[in-house]
Amino acid sequence: MSTKPFVVLENVGKQWNGQLGVEGISLEIEEGSFVALLGPSGCGKSTSLRLLAGLEIPDQGKIFIDGADVTTSAASDRNLSMVFQSYALFPHLSVAENVIFGLKVRRVPKAERQEKMERALKITGLEGLEKRKPGELSGGQRQRVALARAIVAGQRLCLMDEPLSNLDAKLRSSVRKDIKKLQRDLGITVVYVTHDQTEAMSMADKVVLMKDGHIQQIGSPNDLYNHPQNTFVAEFIGAPAMALIDSNIINGIENGNRIGLRAENITIVPLGEGRLSCRVSEAEFLGSETLIGLEHEGTTGLNVLQPGLSMLPSGQKIDITFDDQDLHIFNSAGESITGQ
């Protein structure tokens, strides 16, 4: 194995009629890792994936897969598979025909085709459904057919474009585990686009958070949660996200900066003993805990978590406190200046 990472994007950019698609995308993906491209809609994560897949050709930059420059190669020459958001299953073909479609196109001998299909269907738990048409399957089964089609050829790189967004919430969490297990068992590299941070944080080894066509931060889920590089990351990651507080309303912090603070690091103290006194705006019972929204001038998204059922009436005044070591400090440009 070469020391160069499996997939490399170097300063890749793509524009449409002068409108920005993505710009300056540089990314390295190790073989066998699970990378999630995360961001709000329109941030360029799908565009990045399509550039990597070869469905779009970049205006600038270079793309390498397994050491080869594939910047302008056709999609079929990149030795990858893809799972589409809509699954893109051919409705007139049966499950079996859908799965082996690519093998047939590549003129794989019939016996081998059959063997590979059976293995793929076994892995995805679709045995017995070979003869069904996609229209006769449930959403979850269709999703698994799309997965089977992606893994049947044995490509080392698999791209997934929001594969879970058409499933209901309950199914989503179980399929999430299935995909992660599949990726680990097969040892394939997965690049996974999602707008759902739970998916990204729970599955990925490396999360790439994007906004407006630019990468905001690349790091492990832990990095993004605990060391956000800027206020966008801070306000995007976590549920509830980090609260941002103007530094001038808290004593002992350099002026002109903004302070990030997570709900779990805030404690409620008796009136008069806190570092900040605010008003309760709403309370939301989540089961094991209650999320209490707080209001104060110069703050956004300030929340505190209380164990169990603890519905405080809105408008009630409470005092809160926190440790300096839990604070994330951002400069006026929104970049983190917390010593790491």
């Binding site: 079929s76 020459d77 479609f101 590549r106």
Partner: peptide, 14 residues
């Protein structure tokens, strides 16, 4: 859907 063409493209379908 456009997806079908793209899915076929990735498999190298003429």
């Amino acid at each position: 859907p456009e997806d079908y063409k793209e899915a076929a493209d990735i498999e190298g379908t003429s």
